[in-house]
């Protein structure tokens, strides 16, 4: 296990937003690892800290009010918190790049698309402007857009094509890690499938690791190797796709699955998770999920659950389990 190489390792990361209305604890000891060449799906509700995790890897958490209060992030084995801002600029776009949620707003409206792709190439590679434009056209062709359309502006492209351009920018310098922050949320379903298929192919081609931030379990099943379920700024369950989907342990993960319609039994009522995300300025003392949990016990209110491992990869943070019963099938009390 120790000889595995990780593209990114996050240990015990804590991020706070210090606003006038109080301290928002966005991440509370988040652990996350992505093996080289693999894809991890980070699943959770709105406000669980998914995007903050992505931004923290780039060290772009908006500051103020964001403060990284603890933990470490290692990128290809190097600690990014010990780097200078200048060294970080050299990493962004080269070693890690990010695909933003909304392609409509993440492209500069007054620059042609090839200029925007060429910009990242010029920043990180030793080429002149002409060479960079040349490479930009190649990148466009690779994401399925004719190279001659490179001289057009973003408003002349459709949503799906804009997202392809964003992907071309992200992959232009063949980064070792690609952070995709809900890359398909703003697209319609047919385009979603195309874009996902393309990302899958390109990922294999460049041997890029990927952090897929999403709330869509369908996308996770489609594209990810491992899954981390995030709730209240912590990973509550992590494992391989098979572990999490077929051997679900955490009540929250189970709740996510039960919120999906079942095609085989369409008359069955959906069972959404009751209640709302806890107020991040005032998180519960014990398990952050206990106010909404069907299995909540007295201990959940006061004591934070520890990681319980089901196998080398799969763990869950819940008081329902200990080493003895975690391997027994199914969710306890089901």
């Amino acid at each position: 296990m120790s000889d595995k190489k990780y593209a990114v390792e996050i240990n015990d990361l804590a991020v706070e937003f210090r606003t006038d209305d109080g301290i928002v604890k966005a991440l509370n000891g988040l652990d996350l690892k992505i093996e080289e060449g693999k894809t991890l799906g980070l699943v959770g509700e709105t406000g669980a800290g998914k995007t903050t995790t992505g931004l923290a890897i780039l060290r772009l958490v908006p500051s103020p009010p964001g403060v990284i209060v603890g933990g470490s992030i290692k990128l290809n084995g190097e600690d990014i918190f010990s780097k200078t801002e200048h060294e970080m600029q050299a990493l962004r776009g080269k070693a890690v790049s990010m695909i933003f949620q909304d392609p409509m707003t993440s492209l500069n409206p007054v620059m042609t698309v090839e200029e925007q792709i060429a910009e990242v190439i010029e920043l990180h590679e030793d080429v002149n402007h002409k060479g960079a434009i040349e490479k930009a056209k190649e990148m466009l062709e690779m994401v399925g857009i004719p190279g001659e359309r490179g001289t057009e502006y973003p408003h002349q492209f459709s949503g799906g094509m804009k997202q392809r351009v964003v992907i071309a920018i992200a992959l232009a310098c063949s980064p070792s890690l690609l952070i995709a922050d809900e890359p398909t949320t703003a697209l319609d379903v047919t385009i979603q499938a195309q874009v996902l298929e393309m990302m899958k192919e390109l990922k294999v081609k460049y041997n890029t690791s990927m952090l897929m931030i999403t709330h869509d379990l369908g996308i996770v099943a489609e594209i990810c190797d491992t899954v981390s379920v995030i709730y209240g700024g912590r990973v509550v369950e992590h494992g391989s796709l098979d572990d999490v989907f077929n051997n679900t342990r955490h009540p929250y993960t189970e709740g996510l699955f039960r919120s999906l319609p079942n095609l085989d039994n369409r008359s069955e009522k959906l069972k959404p998770i009751k209640g709302l995300m806890p107020d991040p300025t005032n998180l519960p003392e014990g398990c952050t999920f206990y106010p909404r949990c069907d299995y909540a016990m007295e201990i959940c209110k006061t004591v934070k659950p520890k990681k319980v491992y089901r196998n080398d990869e799969h763990y869950v943070e819940c008081h329902l389990y200990d080493e003895n019963n975690v391997k027994v099938g199914g969710l306890i009390g089901k």
Partner: peptide, 17 residues
């Protein structure tokens, strides 16, 4: 605060650019 400015930061552009 537009998203494309954040995107520019994410590709490693410095303040001048």
């Amino acid at each position: 605060d537009a998203e494309y400015i954040e995107a520019a930061k994410a590709i490693g552009a410095n303040d001048r650019i």
